[in-house]
């Protein structure tokens, strides 16, 4: 219990610190939002009035606290360039990010764990060695290049999907799912290769330990030893890796959205940064950071379930 509370406090502190960092960063950026909104021809009086209306004349700390308070209650400010509430702009885009991240994560798990076990079990066969080479190669391909390759091979040559043909969830749920799945592969493949290799090495090194020999000597068959004994230990580093990868997946989705022209968080973030539309950029970054921190927290809390020794150490 104390373990959980300590983690929770760390999590909240982390989110606060991230939000403060982001807020400060965007406040010290040169350029004045009021000038931004009214254009350079605006009179000094008008600018002054708008600054007062936006609260820009107040001290930084007060503005930060105000922003946090509003953020928690769901008011994320108003976009400088589109003049609509940020919340409204982000509403349906959050779903896209979650779909992309979720599907990628699922793919990584579904690809890497069975293949990792298989290649570890038959590590001296040719197909396992072929997978070693393939893994090494896939780890070296940047996700967005995999995206380009997928677009070229499956989109332009084989006509299996329409590149850039994103459809929204509301108009065509199945098309949306398929398009997101295609995009997810480009995030998932390099990570799946890493996780698969990690699992294979971890199973192989566990298999050398004494308790495995003991298990065999008690008359267990290979599969029993593998699934009941070896795998339980071998999965621990893989779970750690998967937890750490989640942040990468979220970040990766920003780039992949660009490759597949998916109108999600990533594209909005890039345009809002180049348009100096800071309320939008701030909100997106804080939401992404929040997601990452919460996911890390969940992984941390699941840890004792997989490895009961962690709990003991903490007590």
């Amino acid at each position: 219990m104390r373990y959980a509370i300590r983690k929770l406090v760390t999590m909240i502190l982390t989110i606060l610190m991230v939000s403060l960092l982001v807020f400060l960063a965007f406040s010290i950026i040169p350029g004045d939002p009021a000038t931004q909104m009214l254009g350079t021809n605006a009179t000094a009086q008008k600018l002054e009035a708008l600054r007062a209306q936006m609260g820009l004349d107040r001290p930084l700390l007060i503005r930060y606290l105000e922003w946090v308070k509003n953020f928690i209650s769901g008011d994320m400010g108003i976009s400088y360039s589109y003049h609509v509430p940020v919340r409204q702009m982000l509403y349906d885009k959050l779903g896209i990010m979650l779909t992309l991240t979720g599907l990628s994560f699922l793919l990584i798990v579904l690809l890497s764990i069975p293949l990792g076990i298989l290649t570890a079990k038959y590590y001296d066969r040719y197909f396992a060695k072929a997978f070693d080479v393939l893994n090494q190669l896939f780890m070296a391909i940047p996700p967005f290049f995999i995206g380009i390759l997928i677009t070229y091979l499956f989109g332009l040559l084989m006509h299996l999907f329409t590149p850039g043909g994103f459809v929204s969830y509301k108009s065509d749920p199945w098309g949306y799912f398929l398009y997101m799945l295609t995009a997810s592969f480009s995030i998932a493949l390099p990570k799946a290769a890493m996780s698969m290799r990690l699992l294979k090495n971890s199973v192989l090194s566990e298999a050398k330990l004494d308790y495995v020999r003991t298990a065999y000597s008690r008359g267990n068959r290979t599969n029993q030893v593998l699934y009941r004994h070896v795998l339980r230990n071998a999965l621990i580093p893989v779970v750690t890796f998967l937890g750490m990868t989640l942040a990468d997946i979220v970040a990766g989705s920003i780039v992949i959205e660009q490759v597949f022209s998916i109108p999600g968080f990533g594209r909005l973030l890039i345009t809002s940064i180049s348009n100096r539309d800071y309320p939008v950029a701030q909100a997106i970054i804080v939401i992404i950071a929040f997601l990452v921190v919460v996911i890390n927290f969940i992984v941390d809390s699941l840890y004792p379930l997989i490895d009961p020794r962690v709990k003991k150490d903490e007590q």
């Binding site: 982390t14 610190m17 991230v18 960063a25 942040a247 970054i285 992404i288 950071a289 890390n296």
Partner: peptide, 22 residues
């Protein structure tokens, strides 16, 4: 180290983005 943890829990490209915005 707490500060470090915050930076590490943040996707690196996002942090780079904030700095580029600056």
């Amino acid at each position: 180290m707490r500060f470090n943890d915050v930076m590490l829990s943040f996707p690196s490209i996002l942090l780079a983005l904030v700095l580029i915005a600056l």
